Each structure stands twice: as structure tokens, then as C-alpha cells.
Amino acid sequence: MTHRSSRVLAAIGIVALALTATTACTTGAGSPKPSASVSQPATSASPSRNPDSGQEPVKGAAESFSAWLAASRVPDVGTACAGLAPQLVQRMIAELNANAGVNVSACEEMIAATAQLYKAAGQDASVDIAVQHETATDATLFVTYGASGDCGTVVMHRPGMEWIITEQSQECAR
């Protein structure tokens, strides 16, 4: 795999938009400390019931991110795009166009293109997720990808029933 492909895979995989080259994940003294670690395959998402309504499923941020990652790899472009903030989509499209030798203009094209890149690279979607902070509406996760060791901080917001990955998400500092 070329350095350029590795960089794009890492940026899209952790929903980050780093402008520097990526290598292996290292957490230095300045890295935030996770409060809980959840090692999950991307396809494991079993929602619990909302105690107020008894009917609506409620997912934690880690489960929601895992479900998003699984959808992005299939790809289920509708589900994957619904889980991204519009500002993040714009930055991800710019990063993909600048570094992957492809030209996409919409989220659906971006998700389809990155799913193809992951398949071509033979990378699975296994991740280790450490919840750094989570409230009913906001969460910060530290994600490390098993296949590459790449990592990043995923910042999420839940304005309603579903979590959205925000533009504050970023790769580990290199």
C-alpha cells in the first residue's frame, strides 16, 4: 500500500482530517487518558431500550460509532452519511480529493470510494474504542484501528436520538 493510500484510509477511517502524514499510533504524555476501553468489532451494535418510552432504541456513543464504521465499510452510504456532520463531510471530501487520486463531490461518493480503498487494502474494521467522555448529548472517543494501528479522537454530538460525528474529530498527532 502506498503512503498516500495509508494516509487516506486513516483519515477516513477515524473520521479525521489530518493534514500531516500518518504513521503508527502513539499516545504521548499530552494525550488524553481514556476513562473506559471497549474493544469492539465494527458490526456489534445491540441497542438498549429507552427507559422513558420503552420503544426507541438508545445506543451509546461507542456502539453508534461502531455501527457507523460498519455502515461505511459495506458501504451503506445513506446510513454512513447520516452519521456525519456536514462540515466534517466537506473536510473529508477535500482530504480524499487532495490525497487519494480520486474526485468526489458528495458524501455518498466519498463513502463508496473509501469502502473500495479499504477493500483493496484488505483492511478490516476492527477497532478498540476508549470512551473518554460521554453525556446524554456529547461524547469523545479515542479510537485505535487494529489493522493499521492508526488512531484518533472521535467527537460526537446527539441532538436527538442518533449520534453525529462532528468536525472536531481528528487523527493522533504525529
Rank of each mutant, 00 (worst) to 15 (best):
N99C: 00
R91D: 09
A98R: 11
S105L: 05
A115S: 04
D76Y: 03
A42G: 05
W68D: 02
A45Q: 14
S44D: 02
A136D: 10
W163Q: 08
S44K: 06
Q55H: 15
G146T: 10
G28K: 06
M1W: 01
T20L: 05
E162M: 04
S148V: 00
Q40H: 10
V77I: 09
A125N: 15
P34T: 15
V89N: 04
S148F: 03
S48V: 03
I165H: 01
R158N: 06
A21N: 10
S44C: 04
V38D: 13
M156H: 04
A98H: 07
G122R: 06
V155R: 11
T20K: 08
R4M: 01
V155K: 14
P47G: 05
L141P: 06
N99W: 06
V154L: 03
L17Y: 12
E162V: 06
A115Y: 03
R4K: 09
C172Q: 11
S44V: 10
T140E: 09
P159N: 07
P159K: 07
E109I: 08
L17D: 13
R4Q: 08
P159A: 06
T27E: 10
F65E: 03
A85F: 03
T23Q: 07
G78F: 12
A24G: 12
S48W: 02
T43V: 11
M161K: 14
A70G: 01
I164Q: 11
H157G: 10
R158A: 01
D124K: 14
N50G: 00
A42C: 11
E171G: 08
A112T: 13
Q90P: 00
H3Q: 14
F65V: 03
L88M: 10
L117V: 04
A82C: 01
G146Y: 09
R49M: 12
F65I: 06
T22W: 09
A36P: 02
A113P: 04
D52V: 11
A61S: 06
A36V: 10
G78H: 13
I111F: 12
T20F: 06
L96G: 01
A100W: 02
V154W: 10
A173V: 12
P34R: 15
M110W: 14
Q55K: 15
I129Y: 14
T144P: 05
D138S: 04
T2C: 12
P57C: 02
T153N: 05
T153L: 09
T114S: 09
R4S: 08
N97H: 04
F142H: 11
V74P: 11
S44T: 07
S105N: 09
T43E: 11
P32M: 11
V104E: 14
V74C: 08
S46I: 08
V154R: 12
A115L: 03
I165S: 01
G30H: 12
L96Q: 13
H3V: 03
